[in-house]
């Protein structure tokens, strides 16, 4: 399942989830920046849990639900990222939003330390971290009903 739709992919054993999403399904919102599990750009959710799709083999996904940035386009974080100016070059941004969405789903009102902990696997070379925190806090404040 990808973003609520059922897909069957026929690819060589050893194909990563990231490649399957990008090359077979054309979901290029998921970025690859290192391809070896070090940067978080390729983050997607598997049953709501953030994973690095560049080091996840597609055949291990099975029936689980994959959520990519394409499945989160209506998430309030997207607008919050824009409003907080949390995207510069934007290459890390989809991965950041996927991670942040998983954080907010598990912890609707995260504190600073929880944000840092959850987001530390997502590198941003442009240095948007302060703005990302602001975006997450803005959505968290809505969760608070404030």
């Amino acid at each position: 399942m990808v973003n609520g739709g059922l897909h069957e992919v026929d690819v060589p054993v050893g194909t990563t989830l990231a490649d399957a999403l990008r090359d077979v399904l054309g979901l290029t919102g998921t970025k690859i920046a290192c391809g070896e599990g070090h940067c978080g750009a390729c983050t997607v959710q598997l049953d709501g849990v953030p994973v690095l799709s560049c080091i996840t083999l597609v055949h291990t996904v099975g029936e689980r639900e994959v959520t990519t940035i394409e499945g989160l386009r209506e998430h309030p974080l997207v607008q919050a990222f824009v409003e907080a100016d949390a995207t510069q070059c934007g290459f890390c941004t989809p991965g950041q939003i996927v991670s942040a969405a998983a954080l907010l789903a598990a912890t609707p009102r995260p504190g600073h330390d929880e944000i840092v902990h959850a987001m530390s696997g997502n590198l941003c070379r442009c240095g948007t971290y302060p703005k990302i925190e602001r975006a997450i806090e803005a959505v968290a404040a809505e969760n608070r009903g404030g």
Binding site: G29, D85, G90
Partner: peptide, 19 residues
Amino acid sequence: ATRVDGLARARGEARYTQD
């Protein structure tokens, strides 16, 4: 001003050379 291309980037619609 928020970025005029912010949504394209944040929604994963922006096409980079890699895409």
